[in-house]
Design a binder for these strands. Structure first.
Lengths: 213, 213, 213, 213
DNA sequence: AATGAATGAGGGTTCATTCAT
DNA sequence: GATGAATGAACCCTCATTCAT
């Protein structure tokens, strides 16, 4: 099925913003990639910055919704964390362009849009913070600097978008599984596996990203 | 002592490239930050891109030299890794602008300069790879995907530059210590401390960065 | 009929390049003369240098085609030379700006474009060389340094673009006639007239330059 | 003998202005060619434009003085013309850079300087005009458009600077001789030689240009 | 005599955006 | 829905020139 012009614009923007950065991407680059004239672009977008903001809030919104859905009803902090890690990793490995834009282009947003994006991100990170704190409180995790470890975890998992290739030797599931294991070890949780965590995350990711941004 | 114009240009570039990105930083921004006219900038730099390339290769070169010095004569893979992690973290926490430029602006380099930078980075990462592999071979580390874990480690440690603040509650030494612990846990190395690793790294960092880029 | 923007740009460039030289003409001068903003210029041209190259090759191309058409079927070297001289003079008197650009701005071309222009010019001059040589071979001309005389002739005729004014006392036809006479005398061809040579040249010039560059 | 800095500046300017045009030559080009810093240039020159004006008036002045000396006491218009042609040709062949600057860069002069230069040139051309007119009056020359022929002659002779090479097959004397012959033929003066005209011109040129501008 | 440092003005070119068609 | 035409502002960079040293 052919893509609509609007979709082509979105995807071109995601790809180019991810590869060359927002300021490194010209409106003409976008037009060329979307196979439109630069004037026609403006039928499908507001300003260039609104396009960026839309991509970021959309992507973050899905991540947030994913976190909500994936952790719902999961009581064990170990499982919760494993699910969060798997979700994050699968998202960053599966949508590397979108997530790199979110992670790298905040500086290009106007203050208003930035505020909104930061609020979403903070809300998302709260899932991680709460899970970690609860795990510590319950004695499942052992860590002297949980706030630091949370940031370390997030950076580690987001980094996946910078290097993972689906054409490499590692499948998505094994990747997520491995990261979940790393995370639990970082939190001093022994070598417990969390069977089903990756499955749950994969399922959520596939629904959340059914329509491709 | 007052800074020379050349130093002011370098520092302005590091700060601005880190905060707004290479393409988001105008030559006029640089001039203003360096308290020079935009024409005068060109007494102290070649093109804007050469300025970027110089910053990146300089910073990477110091990181590389630091890795060389810090690991020299350290036989135990656990200690080696702890030293590498501490060095990386201290560098990224202490020079967050420089390292963020290195980590985020590769896309803005011309192919020739990019090639050079990538080569340096690869050479640097080899220290990590060799250390991890040797640790596994010796049974000090246990990991099924050492290549993935290496990348996870690097992203985790580089991420420090994105959030650490010296005005926060955590001192540099404790930060480095904590990250070294995380790394060892990720590699299944139990809870062994590596006393002295952070000290060694701190000393190397302070010599390598004696002159401030 | 009003001129198109593209035509205005071309004509402004021809006029200004002729009057002030390529390097003496700024893009803003061009814009003002073409009654466009400097940004709008770039809808109708590539780079400034491409604009110059286009003017030069266009003009030279017409001169070349004119030489081909005007000498076709003219067997007598005296008549051939008279036709070439008349064509050259009429072109330089009628299109002084275009021809001065061709004659004076070769140094401003990039090596690639220069090569092309020089090739065209050499091809054009071959018409003169062959005609002179044949005239000497047939005994119509007498000259000990035909190569030098050819250059003298060309410079003499091209010079017309530097001083001739249609508002002066001399009409184009008489000018051309006079130059043809000078040329024949230079080649030791007595005082033979070549009736019809100027007419032929005039006709070719008017077709070749029907559309005004 | 080493050249003085001032001479080096002058010669660099002559060469560069001739090759790349006044506006195509930067102050840095001059400095490099003169092996000086761009600031040091200003010890030996006024503004760039004054440098140009100096070169032009100097060169024109010598040409004018040469014409005066060379025609002094030469009564026969044929000989006078031959001497003028030879002088002009020898000058343009011997000092091609200087004369090309004079011939091509008038447009780059300020109105005041241009006025001065044009006055010198007009004064110079008067020698030619008077000689031609007198030749016609005396029946030595036959020409219906002496003003046009004068311009044709001048352009023809000046053109020598654009193509003559001392490394070519033609010596200076033969060149001048040939041009004198061409001129006389153009003026309908038969094939009379003017023995000694070239010698006289050569001698004048060598004194006038003893010190090399 | 010589030059590094400095700059306002301007170089050619591209920017994101609008609008009439 | 689509686009050529258009532009003010800004892009990076170089210009000719001055001046303190």
């Amino acid at each position: 099925m052919a893509l609509s012009s609007e979709q082509r614009v979105r995807r071109a923007a995601v790809k180019l913003f991810a590869d060359k950065g927002f300021h490194g991407t010209g409106i003409r680059d976008l037009a060329q990639a979307a196979e439109l004239s630069s004037a026609s672009l403006y039928h499908y977008m507001g300003t260039k910055e609104e396009l960026l903001a839309g991509i970021m809030t959309d992507c973050l919104g899905r991540l947030l919704q994913g976190a909500r859905e994936a952790t719902e009803g999961v009581a064990d902090p170990r499982r919760r964390l494993a699910v969060l890690v798997a979700l994050h990793v699968l998202t960053h490995a599966g949508q590397p362009d979108e997530t790199r834009v979110v992670d790298n282009e905040v500086h290009a947003l106007s203050p208003a849009a930035r505020k909104h994006v930061v609020r979403l991100r903070d809300e998302y990170e709260r899932y991680w913070a709460e899970t970690i704190e609860e795990g510590i409180a319950r004695g499942a995790f052992h860590d002297r600097e949980p706030a630091v470890t949370r940031l370390a975890l997030l950076e580690m998992c987001s980094g996946v978008a910078r290097w993972y290739s689906p054409r490499g030797p590692l499948g998505l599931d094994r990747l997520a599984e491995h990261y979940a294991g790393l995370a639990l070890r970082m939190l001093g949780s022994g070598d417990h596996d969390c069977p089903g965590a990756v499955d749950r995350a994969r399922q959520v990711v596939s629904t959340v990203w059914r329509t491709p941004l």
